[in-house]
């Protein structure tokens, strides 16, 4: 790999990292897992003057639930940390479904969840998951911390709302109001390929009734799509066949896929509907599924 010339900094505190970013006048990039940034530097698509490596900052490699149920993922939490967490399925079923299908095992071992969110690739999986969960990014800058909802965080392909001097220190998911259920399905041509289409569904249930819902769509628009109308149609309902079909149709309608070498626009819309249906059908009570 022969990237363009750059200088390398390895701060040991968040404060130090922010100071370095502030000094760099927007010419710095943060290195966490490096699974997107480094290949881009290799191809010289990215040529940052300064690389701020945050891997030496202690206290960022965590994922945990607060007593109130808020779920927090630190900036150095690797995909594999979630994949290997056997308790995650009960706490965060949508995340647990997504973690094993992020990229490939090599990328999962090194790449970070927060880094992936910041990278803002329209085909990135975590943005859909976090949007479905109503999650947020916590950004820390010279003036302290602020919280940015994931649904707003990405403002275009490979663009986010971070200021140049801000570091995304964690991602958070609000506490549930019901029992969590959910799933993530992705169509990829090969493991490690970007999604042809992906669907994240998060439900919170009270009995059989949906009390809160979120649906995020991967790879079918210029950035992650929050299928709010589809999610809304589930709230207050049980997961019967007609509700599922309605949600699938609404999700498909709101997607904005482009025809490309991964498939036609119509095909991708169809996959969105199929996956919404599959995830929700899978979450139906056993009696419903049988019918």
């Amino acid at each position: 790999m022969y990237p363009s010339r750059f200088s390398y900094e390895a701060p040991t505190t968040v404060k130090e990292a922010i100071a370095l970013l502030s000094k760099a006048n927007g010419e710095a990039k943060v290195l966490a897992g490096g699974q997107s940034l480094v290949p881009m530097m290799k191809l010289r698509f990215a040529a940052p003057q300064i690389l701020v490596d945050i891997n030496n900052i202690p206290g960022l490699a965590f994922h945990s639930a607060d007593p109130d149920g808020t779920y927090r993922i630190g900036a150095l939490c690797r995909h594999v940390d979630l994949e290997k967490d056997v308790e995650l399925a009960a706490q965060q079923p949508t995340m647990a479904a997504a973690a094993p299908v992020i990229a490939d095992p090599i990328v999962r071992t090194r790449g970070t969840v927060v880094g992936s969110l910041c990278h803002a690739d329209p085909q990135g999986d975590w943005a859909s998951v976090m949007s479905a969960l109503g999650g947020s990014i916590v950004a820390e800058g010279p003036n302290g911390r602020r919280t940015i909802p994931c649904s707003d965080f990405v403002n275009g392909p490979f663009q986010n709302l971070l200021e140049p001097e801000e570091l995304a220190v964690e991602a958070t998911v609000p506490p549930p109001v019901g029992t969590r259920a959910g799933g993530y399905l992705k169509l990829e041509r090969r493991i490690g390929d970007f999604a042809t289409a992906g669907v994240a569904v998060s439900l919170e249930l009270s009995g059989e009734q949906v009390v809160r819902a979120g649906i995020g769509l991967t790879g079918v628009g210029p950035s992650t799509i929050c299928a709010d109308a589809a999610a809304e149609t589930l709230v207050g309902q049980a997961l019967d066949q007609s509700t599922i079909e309605r949600a699938a149709q609404l999700a498909s309608d709101v997607s904005q896929p482009r025809s490309d070498h991964r498939g036609s626009e119509a095909y991708k819309r169809h996959i969105v509907a199929t996956f919404v249906t599959r995830i929700l059908s899978n979450l139906q009570p056993a009696t419903e599924q049988a019918t």
Binding site: P39, L43, D104, P105, R189, R190, I191, G192, D193, H261
Partner: peptide, 16 residues
Amino acid sequence: CVGSNYMDYLLPTAWE
């Protein structure tokens, strides 16, 4: 050329 790197040129791995 569409297929100029291993993201676009799909070689199956042991996983698939």
